[in-house]
Design a binder for these strands. Structure first.
Lengths: 196, 196
DNA sequence: GTCTATATCGGGATAGAC
DNA sequence: GTCTATCCCGATATAGAC
């Protein structure tokens, strides 16, 4: 059986929200991209906010799946972190044009003071928690969350400047720098290992 | 004499664009905030794009002034960089709610594929060039631009996650980490000092 | 320069036929 | 489930009086 219309709408909206922004995406755009009428569109999603909730849920679900795959395919926890670090290069063309899907959506919803903001931040929290687990397993249980936030900040900084300057060399250099930093984590003593 | 209406419009729009985003800011909002009629508003700025150009020009000008002040008030080039690094803490309350003015505007204009995007990126370029000068003066002429981009990426990463998680401790930790990294710059040999 | 009035368009959202 | 037709509102933008 073909993909149900509801799911097709979510998939299209996920992409259109990413490319054009939430506020700039109209029902007419979305219905046209899905290939259905606006009336039918409203049959599946009464309001735009309702659709946004479904899109964020879909992102939460696909992110969970992706992180699970990474965990399955990569035995070494530090290599898993490196796989995360690499996505700013893997998705570079999209990022150059539209930025990071998570960062740009949370930023837009913050400005709109939108009720879904917290929900969107949960996608960030998924990455944060997964990175925290890997860094704890890599020998940094004491400061794993701080380090996870640092890696997350790296990805957001690189994504934002990649969108601004569109410089592939910059992205590569920052990834190399981050990987070198990750190497130091296991050799260096963790900050409060002597304080405990 | 009082501030001319045109300038008052630019000042208000600068702030409203920052807080609500460019696309979500209507002429009615802006005219109301300035305290004039919509008709009068259009007398000063025919289109929203025209107003955006004026706002970005104002930001370029105020950024130049701010960087000049920092240069004047701070003798040591590395201390100047530290002053830049500190702004994510200084402006934390605004950043928590609205993100970085430069990063969020360029991201939005990228998604809108807006002609003013390049103009908005010029604000980033101003910071980049200023940071490059300071880092070159601090003893890193070979890789000053790379390092400048790294510092810029730091600020954007911290700003984006600050908007998402609103965690002052995280911001403080990242600033401390960046300052520690800046310390290593002068002691460490620069990458291609032996290659030349 | 500033206003009111108005034109025009596109947005979200609903009703109801098929 | 899907469509057409329609409503209502708010948005940009213009015209013209004062």
């Amino acid at each position: 059986m073909p993909t149900p219309t509801r799911q097709r709408i979510i998939d299209v909206a996920n992409r259109v929200f990413y490319e054009n922004g939430y506020g700039a995406s109209s029902f007419a755009d979305l219905a046209g991209a899905v290939g259905i009428s606006r009336g039918n569109f409203h049959h599946h999603f009464r309001t735009k906010d309702e659709l946004l909730t479904a899109v964020v849920d879909a992102r939460l679900s696909s992110t969970r799946a992706m992180l699970g795959t990474w965990s399955d395919q990569t035995p070494d926890p530090l290599d898993r972190v490196r796989r995360f670090v690499e996505i700013v290069a893997t998705n570079r063309e999209d990022i150059d044009r539209y930025g990071c899907p998570v960062g740009t959506l949370t930023a837009e919803l913050a400005k709109l003071d939108h009720p879904e903001r917290a929900h969107a931040v949960a996608v960030f929290a998924l990455f944060r928690e997964w990175l925290r687990e890997q860094l704890a397993a890599a020998g940094r249980p004491q400061d794993a969350d701080e380090l996870a936030m640092h890696v997350l900040a790296f990805s957001q900084g690189v994504a934002t400047l990649s969108t601004a300057f569109r410089d592939a060399d910059f992205v590569r250099r920052e990834i190399d720098r981050m990987n070198a930093w990750l190497d130091t984590l296991v050799t260096d003593p963790s900050p409060d290992s002597e304080a405990t």
